[in-house]
Design a protein around this nucleic acid. Structure first.
Length: 256
DNA sequence: TCATCCCTGTGG
DNA sequence: CCACAGGGATGA
């Protein structure tokens, strides 16, 4: 579910609620997360809540609590309602709680001393590195964009959306892009991410993604999930292929 | 660079 | 019943 815009939205909403607050206790409702609850000495105040790629970092006074939502995870702010289904972990604060909800249980929560994941530059930041980096890879551009070691934050939706906006066929080798196409791609990545941030992310038909306070995201994909539907620009039916094991949507007319 | 796996839910 | 799902680690 969550890519950069959804993760960033989650952090922006939760930050003012937890910043400076004392994390009192962790309660693992999923046995797999019991070790985390044991590893973390509490209470500890939250000194920062930040995002790195798609990772969420609770910067506590002594340790780092690192959350990755993977496919179906979300964080919710909870005050008094009943605990929802699929809640895996409860972070208890004096005035409420953060819930880690994850039906498929693919998400991760770890206690670390320092963030050590191998991530490329953030997709929201300066993308001038793409010029050189793309030259070195023969992978399909869409597969390259999904590899977090190359660029951090894009997922299956926004990689497809950015390539559509840039007019680039997702099957093209990364190294085959002209300087002009790389420029278009850089602009397209930023445009798509800023649009999605303004919309607070994307909630698809399955409705699994919600912000921490329960709102749906309003971003409407141009190609993602629209197989057979007319391209919003030229009317050609959107195609779905498989690339790197993931469903890939594109307009065969607009993307060359 | 690929297939496979993790795990569960939903929809055709 | 099978196909598919927003992500990523792993081993061949």
């Amino acid at each position: 579910m969550p890519e950069l815009p959804e993760v960033e939205t989650t952090v922006r909403i939760l930050r003012p609620k937890v910043l400076g607050m004392n994390l009192l206790a962790l309660q693992a409702l999923d046995p797999a997360l019991a070790p985390v609850a044991k590893l973390l000495p509490l209470p500890q105040p939250v000194q920062g809540l930040t995002r790195r790629g798609k990772y969420i970092l609770f910067q506590l006074s002594e340790k780092l609590l690192v959350v990755h939502l993977r496919m179906s995870g979300r964080l919710a702010w909870h005050e008094k309602e009943p605990i929802p289904d699929h809640t895996r972990l409860i972070l208890a604060f004096p005035h409420g709680a953060v819930l880690f909800i994850d039906p498929r249980r693919l998400g991760t929560v770890e206690v670390q001393d320092g963030f050590s994941e191998e991530l490329g530059p953030d997709a929201l930041g300066d993308l001038s590195f793409l010029e050189e980096a793309l030259k070195e890879s023969r992978a399909p551009i869409k597969v390259w964009l999904l590899d977090q070691r190359n660029i951090a934050g894009l997922g299956n939706i926004y990689a497809a959306e950015a390539l559509f906006l840039a007019g680039i066929d997702p099957r093209r080798r990364a190294s085959s892009l002209s300087p002009q196409e790389v420029s278009k791609l850089k602009a397209a990545i930023h445009q798509v991410l800023h649009e999605a941030l303004a919309a607070m992310g994307t909630t698809l038909f399955d409705k699994t993604y919600r912000t921490p306070v329960g709102e749906a995201g309003d971003y409407e994909p141009r190609v993602y999930g629209r197989e057979g539907l007319p391209c919003k620009v030229c009317g050609t039916p959107i195609e779905r292929i498989e690339l790197g094991g993931r469903g890939t949507y594109f307009c065969p007319h607009c993307q060359k």
